[in-house]
C-alpha cells in the first residue's frame, strides 16, 4: 500500500515494510536509490531526526522477488505558527478585506478557515481567486459601535494554530494611495510647483465619503520633508520651492472623518521653472544666440516616476 506520511523536522521516523515480518529480508529505496542498510533494523526503516531534504518517495521491496511491498511519500515539515492576519477597508463603505500569511513556511499543505462575526451575526467572507490568502466582506451595517471579530484558523497534518482580530468598523478604514500624481513647474515662477493627483480608484464614493490628503515634498539635496494637509481638492501649488532644485513629491489620503492614512503615493520628481540664460555682448553673444536658437527649449523633466519602491515613511 502507498500513501503520504507527514513527519515533523527533527522527528525519528520508523517505516514498516507493509505486512512483512520483522526479520524478513527487504530492500528500502528512496527516489530510486538504495538506502544504506545502517538505516535498517530488520525489515524496518529507521530515519533519525529527519530534515527537509529527506522528503521523498520511499519504497520497500521483498528480498528475493523484488516485489513492491510498501510505498510512502514522506513529507517532512512543520506545524503552522500563529498566522499573521490583517483586515482593512480600502473601499469604505462597501466592505473590507482580510489577508493573511504564515510567519514561517511549513513545507507541507496548509488549510485556512476564516470566521467573521459582527456582534452575534456571522458574516460571509468571500474568498478571492487571487491572491489566495485573501477574502472580502460586505458591510451590511454602517456606523456600528459593535466590534468585528475575525478568527483565522490554519491547519496542516502536523498541527493547528489560529489568531483573532477584534476591531471597530472605523478603525480599519485605510484608503489606497492617491493615483496619477503629477508635478509641473509653473512658467515664470521659479519657486512654484503645481501638484495634482486623483482619488484612489478603489475608493467608491468620494462625494459622500470625501478624502483629505497629506502632501510631502523635499528637494533631493535635503532629507527633511515639508508637509501640508489639504482637506479638499486634489491639487496644490507648492510656493516655497528652492529655485532650480529637483523635488521629490508624494501624497497620502485619509477618509475625512475616520480611519488612518494611506501609504504614500508613488513618488514624482519635478524642478521649478528656471529663467533662460541672458544674451552676452560681442561675438560670444552672437554665437550664444545661434546655439540658443538651435537647441529647442527643454523643459525640466516634469515627471519622473520613481521606482515603485518608494514606500510611506521609508
Amino acid at each position: 500500500d502507498s500513501h503520504v506520511q507527514y513527519e515533523r523536522v527533527g522527528a525519528d521516523v520508523t517505516m514498516k515494510c507493509g505486512s512483512m515480518d520483522w526479520d524478513a529480508a527487504v530492500t528500502w529505496m528512496t527516489n530510486g536509490t538504495d538506502i544504506d542498510e545502517s538505516h535498517q533494523n530488520g525489515s524496518y526503516l529507521i530515519l533519525k531526526k529527519v530534515n527537509l531534504t529527506q522528503s521523498g518517495q520511499y519504497s520497500c521491496y521483498e528480498g528475493s522477488s523484488w516485489h513492491l511491498k510498501y510505498q510512502t511519500s514522506l513529507r517532512v515539515g512543520m506545524p503552522p505558527k500563529e498566522p499573521v492576519l490583517m483586515c482593512r477597508s480600502n473601499n469604505y463603505p462597501k466592505g473590507f478585506y482580510c489577508s493573511w500569511h504564515l510567519p514561517t513556511p511549513t513545507y507541507i499543505p496548509n488549510f485556512f478557515n476564516i470566521s467573521v462575526v459582527h456582534g452575534t451575526r456571522e458574516m460571509v467572507c468571500e474568498k478571492d481567486t487571487f491572491p489566495k490568502n485573501r477574502c472580502h466582506i460586505r458591510y451590511l451595517q454602517l456606523f456600528s459601535t459593535v466590534k468585528y471579530k475575525v478568527t483565522l484558523t490554519v491547519t496542516n497534518a502536523l498541527g493547528k494554530n489560529s489568531t483573532t482580530l477584534t476591531f471597530d468598523e472605523v478603525a480599519i478604514v485605510k484608503p489606497d494611495p492617491p493615483e496619477s500624481v503629477v508635478a509641473k513647474p509653473v512658467p515664470n515662477n521659479p519657486r512654484r510647483l503645481e501638484v495634482s493627483w486623483q482619488n484612489p480608484s478603489s475608493w467608491p464614493d468620494p462625494e459622500s465619503f470625501p478624502l483629505k490628503f497629506f502632501l510631502r515634498y523635499r528637494p533631493l539635496i535635503l532629507d527633511q520633508w515639508q508637509h501640508v494637509e489639504l482637506s479638499d481638492g486634489t491639487s496644490h501649488t507648492i510656493t516655497d520651492a528652492y529655485a532650480g532644485k529637483e523635488y521629490i513629491i508624494q501624497v497620502a489620503a485619509k477618509d475625512n472623518d475616520i480611519g488612518t492614512w494611506s501609504d504614500w503615493s508613488v513618488a514624482v520628481h519635478a524642478t521649478p521653472w528656471t529663467e533662460e540664460p541672458k544674451h552676452l555682448t560681442t561675438e560670444a553673444q552672437i554665437t550664444e544666440t545661434t546655439s540658443a536658437s538651435t537647441s529647442s527649449f527643454m523643459p525640466p523633466p516634469t515627471t519622473k516616476i520613481c521606482d515603485k519602491g518608494a514606500v510611506l515613511g521609508s
Binding site: 463603505p93 462597501k94 466592505g95 460586505r138 458591510y139 451590511l140 467608491p204 464614493d205 459622500s208
Partner: peptide, 9 residues
Amino acid sequence: SALSTAESP
C-alpha cells in the same frame, strides 16, 4: 444616488 451596497469591488 449614493452607492448601492449591491456592487462588489
